[in-house]
Simulated assay, not measured.
Amino acid sequence: MLDVLEVVTIVVVGLMVGVEFSVAFVINPILGALPEDSGQLGRSHGGRMLGAVMPVWYFGSLALVAVWAIVGWHDHGAGLVVIAGALLVLSVIMSLLLLVPINNQGKTWTPENRPDDWKEQNHRWDRFHYVRVAVIIAAFTLLVAALA
């Protein structure tokens, strides 16, 4: 049973890492290169769409890691799982304090109502997001290492 939990957890966290990596290094650069207001409209739509899905994914991943840490407490990789869980908690805290407030504003922007500093706010979100991606990659890496 623990083996199934480990695999499911790694797949769920790994997919989350892939999506967030893609947003940081593929989607947002593409949107930034689009002409006129297309990029800003795309980011607003992405903020609405992913803003609805990602909280479930983050908290679900955290729950899976917590269950793994509890069920596998006496296994050799338990310490790595606990550290990975702590990193996921950090990513949730970062999200709630730094990224969500910007996203909540940005997802309502249109070319007619966006603030004058909308590009700076997007760049700030991107910088925070790069750090969050590094944190969840580290958590994912520790989960994989816990199996070795």
Rank of each mutant, 00 (worst) to 15 (best):
M94I: 10
M94T: 09
S95E: 00
S95P: 00
S95N: 04
S95D: 00
L96F: 11
L96I: 10
L96A: 13
L96C: 08
L96S: 09
L96G: 14
L97W: 13
L97S: 14
L97F: 14
L97G: 13
L97D: 08
L97Y: 11
L97I: 13
L97V: 14
L97M: 15
L98T: 10
L98Y: 10
L98M: 13
L99R: 15
L99V: 12
L99P: 04
L99W: 08
V100E: 09
P101V: 04
P101N: 06
P101F: 04
P101R: 07
I102K: 13
I102M: 13
I102G: 06
I102R: 14
I102C: 07
N103F: 07
N103I: 10
N103A: 14
N103T: 10
N104L: 11
N104Y: 07
N104I: 06
Q105M: 13
Q105V: 09
Q105H: 10
Q105W: 03
Q105E: 15
G106E: 12
G106Y: 08
G106H: 12
G106N: 14
G106D: 07
K107M: 15
T108P: 03
T108Q: 14
W109D: 00
W109F: 03
W109N: 01
T110C: 01
T110N: 01
P111R: 06
P111W: 04
P111T: 03
P111S: 05
P111V: 02
E112H: 06
E112L: 05
N113A: 02
N113M: 02
N113R: 06
N113G: 02
N113I: 03
N113E: 03
N113F: 00
R114N: 04
R114H: 05
P115G: 02
P115T: 01
D116N: 09
D116Y: 03
D116F: 00
D116V: 08
D116T: 09
D116W: 02
D117N: 09
D117E: 02
D117P: 00
D117G: 01
W118F: 14
W118G: 05
W118C: 06
W118Q: 08
W118I: 04
K119L: 13
K119D: 12
K119F: 09
E120S: 12
E120Y: 04
E120I: 07
E120R: 11
E120V: 09
Q121G: 01
Q121W: 01
Q121T: 02
Q121S: 05
Q121E: 06
N122T: 11
N122Q: 15
N122M: 14
N122S: 15
H123L: 11
H123V: 08
H123K: 12
H123N: 11
H123G: 04
H123Q: 12
